[in-house]
Simulated scan of single mutants.
Amino acid sequence: MPLLRCAYDGGLVWAPGALAEHLEVAGEFVQAERFARMAADAGDRQALEELAARRRDDDPDRQWRAMLANGLTAEGTSAASW
């Protein structure tokens, strides 16, 4: 984790996605989502999609399922179905 944080601080584009994965494994779900969204904002949507796929079964408000089905709005919320 410390090396990933250094990579993130150094501006390496792959670092937020890698941090998201490691934080999720560590049980830090809020931080994992934060870094996955940062990765998506930088053009790497894989970390957020994988996080959503793993969390969709533990999803009382269905935000992860909606994100997988419909994508995100410009504000970063799950888009409505169309």
Rank of each mutant, 00 (worst) to 15 (best):
Q31S: 15
V13W: 08
E49Q: 10
R34S: 15
A66C: 01
A69M: 08
G43L: 02
A32C: 03
A69D: 15
A53Y: 00
T73W: 10
R45W: 00
D41R: 14
R55I: 03
G27F: 02
A20D: 07
C6D: 14
R54Q: 13
M1E: 14
A69Y: 01
R56T: 12
D59H: 13
L4T: 11
V13E: 15
R62Y: 07
G27I: 08
L3T: 14
E21G: 06
E50A: 14
L3N: 10
Q63F: 12
L51G: 04
H22G: 03
E75W: 00
E28N: 13
W14A: 12
R54D: 10
T77M: 04
A69V: 06
L12K: 13
D58E: 06
L68D: 09
R55K: 09
G76Y: 04
N70K: 02
Q31D: 15
Y8T: 04
A53M: 05
M1F: 08
L68S: 07
G10Y: 01
A26M: 04
A26C: 02
A20P: 04
A40W: 07
A36H: 10
G43S: 06
A66R: 15
A20M: 10
L3D: 13
R34C: 09
G11W: 03
A80Y: 02
A79C: 06
E28T: 07
R37T: 12
D61C: 05
D41I: 04
W82C: 11
N70A: 05
E49N: 03
A20C: 07
V13L: 14
R65S: 12
D59S: 10
R55T: 11
P16H: 09
C6P: 00
